[in-house]
């Protein structure tokens, strides 16, 4: 996103995901810049249609998991061999089979929490965040495309609107945010 967020938008709404995907392809082909796209559920093929990059979240998860594994193994080794060796049930002081369950659990714990926190940060989600709602119906059953209209002339805006309608949009509207707007 830009450092100074635009406030004036054109919003097109579709009611069928297949029509919506085709519309995106055609509009991008025409060279129209799409500011954002909002859907009520994850539409398959949307990221390809928008030309988005593959998310690297899994890779992050792998490294978080590896951290957990290393931490668990090294900490237990340190405690059981160096800092606080105890004699227990005839077990050696470095009982690797005993370490496996906790190692596994910490791997999962780190991977899951690390990934979720990364996900929240990257998606800019936190409790109390006030989102910009372009149209309430996007969380119900409408698929929206948002176009930045800040620096566009009226003619350009109209051409985008016409293009949307031609591609099967059920509704096209302007949306202007004011600074003070809440939910």
């Amino acid at each position: 996103m830009d450092s100074v967020a635009p406030n004036k938008f054109v919003v097109g709404l579709w009611d069928h995901e297949e029509v919506y995907l085709h519309a995106i392809e055609h509009l991008r082909h025409k060279g129209v810049k799409i500011y954002d796209s909002l859907t009520p559920f994850p539409v398959h093929g949307l990221d390809e249609a928008l030309g988005m990059k593959e998310t690297r979240l899994h890779t992050a998860g792998f490294f978080f998991g590896a951290t957990g594994t290393t931490l668990a193994l090294s900490f237990m080794t340190w405690v059981m061999t160096t800092n606080y060796p105890i004699d227990f049930g005839g077990k050696p002081n470095w009982p690797v089979p005993s370490f496996i369950p906790i190692t596994f659990e910490l791997t999962v714990l780190f991977a899951a929490w690390g990934m979720t926190l990364t996900y929240l940060v990257r998606n800019k989600l936190w409790p109390g965040r006030v989102p910009r709602i372009y149209d309430k119906r996007t969380t119900d059953d409408r698929f929206a495309l948002v176009f930045d209209a800040e620096s566009l002339t009226d003619a350009e805006i109209n051409s985008i609107k016409d293009a949307c309608k031609k591609e099967g949009a059920v509704d096209v509207k302007d949306k202007v945010f004011t600074e003070a707007e809440g939910l």
Partner: peptide, 19 residues
């Protein structure tokens, strides 16, 4: 084996099975 290794290595611990 576990005890012997413990004795031999002092605090340095070993695994009865793997060592």
């Amino acid at each position: 084996e576990a005890h012997a290794t413990e004795a031999a290595h002092g605090a340095a611990a070993t695994d009865a099975v793997k060592h």
